[in-house]
Computed example of a mutant assay.
Amino acid sequence: MAEISCDNAVGANGSRPARVGCVVPWFPAQVLYSRSSYPALAAHVSQAQGSGLPGTGFANPLNRNVDTATTNLNRSRACGDAPSISGKSCDEYPLASTYQGLAFGGTRRTFAGCNINAPTNVTGPIGASACMITASENNAQGGVMAKFYYDYRVLGGDPFRVGIGA
């Protein structure tokens, strides 16, 4: 493996400037979701990871997918039939922007209180979880991920981890 990878890739959302930078490609950076700032998001991700879904550590990271069609398919398969609940929106884990989403296999799962029509008490590393969470938290997650992808130079195919912080 290459010890260092350098590039001048365009930023995560296309509006951030290209910049030269280097990373250690085999070391998956970690994005942290704060329990105090995003309690519903952190709770869902924690439950999903607790059921065996990947992204928690070095041995089972998520991998960024930059293909719009499969990202949309991941989102649609996880949340396409989500109910309309005022102030809530459907969150999927693993994130739609990964190769671990439902476009790449597995079945949907959920948890009690998530308001999603899917099996509960499902475990294992394949599949995705869906849960209705506070819409403002779900919307903020997009910004958190765009900043993370840009700041940590997580490019297409690159591994990364998701953690829960205070």
Rank of each mutant, 00 (worst) to 15 (best):
D91W: 00
Y99R: 10
S76P: 02
R77K: 15
A69Y: 09
R75M: 10
T98K: 02
T71Y: 03
Y93V: 04
E92A: 02
A103I: 06
T107N: 13
A78T: 09
S76D: 13
S84R: 14
P94I: 09
C79L: 09
L95T: 08
T98V: 09
G105L: 06
G87E: 05
L102N: 07
F104C: 07
A103G: 04
A78V: 09
Y93T: 08
Q100F: 00
T107V: 05
R75W: 14
Y99G: 09
E92M: 02
C90Q: 12
E92N: 06
A82W: 11
S89I: 05
L102F: 07
R75C: 08
G106E: 08
S97F: 06
P83D: 06
R108K: 14
T71R: 14
G105M: 05
P83I: 01
L95Q: 08
P83Y: 04
S97M: 02
G101L: 04
T110S: 09
G105N: 07
R75V: 05
F104A: 10
T107H: 02
S86H: 08
N72L: 14
T110D: 04
A69M: 11
D91Y: 07
S84L: 14
R108P: 00
K88F: 11
A82D: 13
D81L: 15
A96W: 01
T70E: 11
S97H: 09
N74E: 11
A103V: 02
D81W: 03
Q100G: 01
R77W: 08
R77D: 08
A69R: 15
T107P: 06
P83W: 02
I85D: 04
G80H: 12
L73P: 07
A69Q: 13
G80Q: 11
L102Y: 07
Q100M: 03
S86L: 14
A96R: 10
S86Y: 05
T70Q: 15
D81N: 15
T70C: 11
G101P: 05
A103T: 07
Y99T: 13
D81R: 14
A103S: 11
T107M: 04
R77M: 15
R109S: 09
Y93E: 05
A96Q: 10
F104I: 05
D91V: 04
T98H: 06
G87N: 07
G101K: 03
T110W: 00
A103P: 01
C90M: 12
A82S: 15
Y93R: 05
